[in-house]
Amino acid sequence: MKKLTLPASGDDIECLKAGDSLFISGELYSARDAAHRRMHYALQNGLDIPVALKGRAIYYMGPSPAPPGRVIGSCGPTTSKRMDKYTPLLIEHGTKVVIGKGERSQHVKEALKHSGSIYLVTFGGAGAYLSKCVKEAEVAAYADLGTEAIWRIRVENFPAVVAYDIYGGDLFEQETARYSRSTGKAED
């Protein structure tokens, strides 16, 4: 099991290969559909955005409310593919690590490779389990969006797997091919 400390350096990221299991510690920003749309609109129009993306990690997540005595509620990943149209511009502005669940489109894969950024997946539907790894959480921007606000969260030993590395490695292709016993067609 490798460790990754955030914010990550270029050297840290170069060491990672698709399929590596990681424990992440450090600070990340959450953002999902609504926050992405806002940041993307601002950047496209030459406006400032309320968080500095350079060298940072974005986690596609909108938590459930924290009950009294807890740092955060349930906080697993949402489907990454919905962020695909916004991701290349955010990477261009310095985002180094993106974390979510599921496959992404080819243009995101290429944008990641081009800029030396990586895509990690974590365990979808394990929001209660993952909440144990979150040590601090506060709204960083776009508070009016509620669960869809940008949250600054600090994690310790947060589990993730490298899905796309900077060399074009693709966890989904590698692993699906390994375990696919046929095309799934009846005649096979």
Partner: peptide
Amino acid sequence: QALSILIENASIAREEKIPLCQDC
């Protein structure tokens, strides 16, 4: 590993009364 995390997730959610998934 994923399946065993999901099994543990279910027991955390039940015991600590927090949602199994943030998407309720």
